[in-house]
Nucleic acid binder design. Structure first.
Lengths: 156, 156
DNA sequence: CTTGACCCTAAAGCAACTTCAGGGTGTTTA
DNA sequence: TAAACACCCTGAAGTTGCTTTAGGGTCAAG
């Protein structure tokens, strides 16, 4: 099948597929010598589904590469896989803990202003002007809220 | 004060400060004509603290720009601010909901393999091979878990 | 007068894609 | 049969919030 059909079957854009090939996640497809179009088979389809399933679970490309490797080495121990998943679960839980603190702080901040006043008297701005206190320090900024700004990356 | 001192007082790197200036978050500092070094005053300090506080709350630069604008227009209504914070809270909550689903799925996935088997028999790989089911579809991949790979962005 | 701490700029890197620019291919339809 | 339109190709730049690197001045102390 051609790239467009593969994309439709898996629910990604053709650009994503080409990108995955570049990244080494997906094996380079054979080309139709007549027009240089990529041709995909069942193996590609299954591998791409695997990759997308992993991405849905928020794994990075590196993590996925480990799993892909394991996938084609049926005699290896699956310990590595278990550890990878366990670690990944911890990342997610850590992120949630951070977001919980963040939520608390934001709600408290929001509580500083109920009425529609002028910004001069707005408790929110007032509080934002304060240097960071202990509570806030618990938050590691480095891991920003992904999707906090909600870019809509939808394939049109 | 010079950039290094400002950086120390606020707890960011000098690179971050220069970056903020470039981004238009921080006003360009006046320069010492003798050596072209930036010179900062109290206003810069306060503005930078404000910015960092917002970043700690996971706001984007665009959101912060709105707040900075409001900050210097004391006669405007603070409705905009309230709306911005409310929306931001929703983003955070939405992200947490996504992560909760993610966690459930990962834990279920992990449950597929307890013993250290060969990958051939590993329930985890088996399950990852399945096309996405309804549960999974609830997850919007576009907002990946920030910090899932935990890059340590610490100023050395 | 050299060492080390601090300042400067411009550009590239990170993650996972998307978007854009510029240009072929292939089928259909007027 | 030629224009129109859908689909394919490549390579490079854009996204977010910084960090890192490269290459080079400034300044105070010893």
């Amino acid at each position: 099948m051609k790239i467009g059909e593969l994309a439709k079957q898996v629910g990604v854009t053709v650009e994503t597929i080409r990108y995955y090939e570049n990244e080494g996640l997906l094996h380079a497809a054979l080309r139709n010598p007549a027009n240089n179009y990529r041709r995909y088979d069942q193996g590609h389809l299954e591998r791409l589904i695997f990759i997308r399933r992993c991405r849905t679970l928020a794994m990075t490309h590196n993590e996925i590469k480990v799993l892909l490797q394991a996938r084609i080495q049926p005699d290896d121990s699956c310990e590595t896989i278990n550890e990878l998943i366990d670690e990944h679960i911890h990342h997610v839980q850590a992120r949630m803990a951070e977001l919980t603190i963040l939520e608390t702080q934001l709600i408290e901040l929001r509580g500083q202003c109920h009425a529609a006043l002028t910004t001069r008297d707005c408790g929110i701005l007032r509080e934002l002007d304060q240097p960071t206190d202990e509570l806030t320090e618990a938050l590691v900024v480095q891991s920003h809220v992904a999707g906090s700004q909600c870019k809509t990356h939808q394939p049109k």
